[in-house]
Design a protein around this nucleic acid. Structure first.
Lengths: 218, 218
DNA sequence: CTCCGTTTTAAACATGCGTATAATACAAAC
DNA sequence: GTTTGTATTATACGCATGTTTAAAACGGAG
């Protein structure tokens, strides 16, 4: 069964190339021929191994996307296990690091974000998988981790919205690279990513920061 | 020339239907026939009025999208003109309100966000238009408005990242409605949108809030 | 070698696509 | 009423699409 190393099977090659193309261009902009050409196999392979194009797309989420989500989550929890989450800051930092410089390569992170963003804009059958098996449990995980550090009066809804806000930044700085790069005039290199992580952590903890003491009004 | 009221011209109808379909389903998932059927005109109309499908897509951005962006921006600046922006909070609130409950209808806001998000994930020719004529000037506008209230030591880059973070939330709560609704168990009605705006303002100003005073660790 | 289940292949299918063409309808100008 | 320029229509073209089919290649078991 497992042939992960060396020579990936046709099925495996199809999944990998399909993920890249679907993420970059979207489902409808990618043709089956494009995928099979990239995977170096016959046109009919997609139908043989997956039934049809849509099932291949969903399988990309079920196996590759979910695997990456698990890797990110694992990294996040390892940090917790090694006693690195004893403050609000460390939880948020762990989150930002897991998504922005975690165990995945840069290209993998981009693919991962692109795929899920497309599903969030326009949910398909794959969204159900992503939502119930990754988003929901991960959000609940983070919620329980943050709870002990938060003001006692904070409602569950407030907490969820707070976590969404952290997520929104993490996602944004992954998928809006073109805009961010152009406006900051910085390439997405490891240095800049560290800057982004620091920013997310600081903003999540203190927002825009304390107002300037002086009176700015007339 | 202007026939905006009553009976929109074929050209106008094409633009309007095209925007809805492109926003909902993405460029490649929409066929020319689908657009002309929705607009109640002949298949060849797209080629007659716009040359080809791609030019129609770009024209949607140039006219409809840009018009909406101008409406949002105008609303934001009106608030400034009436002296409503004499604090950091009021600027952020003005921004969140302009995007989340501003002058546009709910459907228009959704279309607007969907179109731009698609371009941010995968920039096409339309991105250039959006970037130089809307994103960049608006960001600079906000930057100069926020400057007087911020800590003097804050660099331009920090400021840009801060504004991005506010934007990321505004965008997220527009396009990730499915996920947000499912996890909070709330529909996107005016009430909930007001909650979202309050949240964005509070989070932007103070982040997750002050840590609980007690010692949470072992 | 032969058999047999699995995988890969080449070829064809029907359908839908974007675009082009040429004929028609329309409406104002003369 | 005829002309003229614009707008709309029906229709067709060439091509790419997802999917199917049936034959071929493969690889271990008997």
């Amino acid at each position: 069964m497992e042939r992960n190393e060396e020579t990936p099977s046709t099925r495996e090659r199809l999944l990998r190339e399909a993920e890249i193309l679907f993420a970059r261009k979207g489902y409808h902009a990618v043709s089956v021929r494009e995928i099979t050409d990239a995977a170096g196999c016959n046109l009919a392979s997609v139908n043989y191994h997956f039934g049809n194009k849509e099932s291949l797309y969903i399988e990309v989420f079920r196996s590759l996307w979910m695997e990456r989500a698990a890797v990110i989550r694992k990294r996040f929890e390892e940090k917790a296990g090694s006693g690195g989450m004893e403050s609000m800051e460390s939880v948020v930092r762990g989150l930002a690091e897991a998504f922005l410089e975690g165990p995945l390569t840069d290209e993998e992170r981009l693919l991962h974000a692109q795929l899920v963003i497309r599903e969030m804009i326009q949910p398909t059958k794959a969204f159900q998988v992503v939502f119930t098996m990754a988003m929901k449990p991960f959000l609940e995980n983070i919620a329980t981790r943050l709870r002990p550090f938060l003001a006692p009066g904070m409602s569950d809804e407030e907490l969820i919205l707070n976590i969404f806000s952290v997520f929104s930044m993490v996602l944004y700085f992954n998928f809006a690279r073109t805009a961010v790069s152009r406006l900051t005039d910085k390439p997405y290199d490891p240095d800049f990513i560290r800057t982004l992580i620091s920013h997310i952590v600081r903003f999540s903890l203190h927002g825009l920061g304390p107002e300037k003491p002086g009176d700015p009004g007339p």
